[in-house]
Amino acid sequence: LRTVEMKKGPTDSLGISIAGGVGSPLGDVPIFIAMMHPTGVAAQTQKLRVGDRIVTICGTSTEGMTHTQAVNLLKNASGSIEMQV
C-alpha cells in the first residue's frame, strides 16, 4: 500500500474516473482508478496510476462501498485528501 496526499480546492477537480464497488456493472469488485485526466489534481501528484485500487479515501475504507458512495466521497472532499492505494 502507498499513501498519496493531494490538495484540492473547492472548485478543483481530482481528474479521475473510478470503477467498481458493490453492485457495479463489473460485479462486486474493489474500487479502482479507471481513467485520469492529465491536468487533474491526481495526475499532478505523479503518484497515482490507472488501475490503482483505492483502499481508503480520507481514512474511510472503500470495502463494501457502492460506486455512488465512493464518487460522492471523492466529489465532496476538499482541502487535504489522503488516499491509500
Rank of each mutant, 00 (worst) to 15 (best):
L26Y: 12
G40Y: 02
I18S: 02
G21T: 01
T3G: 03
A70I: 01
K7Q: 14
I54L: 10
K47E: 12
T66W: 02
L1E: 03
P30F: 07
R53F: 09
D52C: 00
K7Y: 15
K8L: 15
I57V: 08
T60C: 12
M36L: 15
K47Y: 10
S61C: 09
D12W: 04
S61M: 03
D12T: 09
Q84Y: 01
N76E: 12
V41S: 08
N72A: 13
S80M: 12
V71E: 15
V85F: 00
H67R: 14
G20H: 03
H37E: 15
I33Q: 05
T11N: 15
S78T: 14
I57G: 04
K8P: 11
D12N: 11
I54T: 01
S13Q: 14
P10F: 09
T11E: 15
A34R: 11
T68V: 11
S13R: 14
K47C: 10
V22R: 12
S78F: 06
I16G: 01
S61T: 10
S61P: 14
S78I: 09
K7N: 14
V55R: 05
M35Q: 15
I18M: 08
A43F: 10
T68D: 13
C58H: 08
G51Y: 02
G51K: 01
Q46N: 15
G21D: 03
L1I: 15
Q84M: 07
V85L: 05
T56Y: 06
R49G: 10
A77K: 12
V41P: 07
R53D: 10
T60Y: 13
T62M: 06
P10L: 09
L1F: 12
F32A: 06
N76H: 13
T11A: 13
I31Q: 00
Q46F: 05
T60A: 11
L48S: 04
S17H: 13
S61V: 06
K8D: 00
G64T: 07
L14C: 06
V4I: 13
T60K: 15
R2S: 09
A19V: 07
I31C: 06
Q69A: 11
V22D: 05
M6E: 00
M65V: 02
D28P: 06
T68K: 14
E82I: 14
Q46R: 13
L26W: 11
M65T: 03
G15V: 01
C58A: 11
K8N: 04
P30W: 01
E82C: 11
S61W: 03
I18G: 00
N76F: 11
T68S: 13
Q84A: 08
I18C: 02
T11P: 06
L48R: 03
M65K: 02
T11F: 15
T66D: 08
M35S: 15
G15P: 03
R49V: 08
V4A: 08
T66I: 02
T62L: 09
I18Q: 03
V22F: 11
G23L: 06
G79N: 08
M65S: 01
N76V: 08
I54G: 02
V55L: 13
S78G: 12
G20F: 04
S78Y: 10
V22Q: 09
N76K: 13
G79Q: 07
T66S: 13
E5N: 15
D28A: 04
I16F: 10
V29F: 04
L1T: 10
A70D: 01
Q69S: 08
A34G: 11
V85H: 00
S17V: 15
L1S: 07
L73Q: 07
I16Y: 02
H37L: 09
L48C: 08
K8Y: 08
Q44K: 15
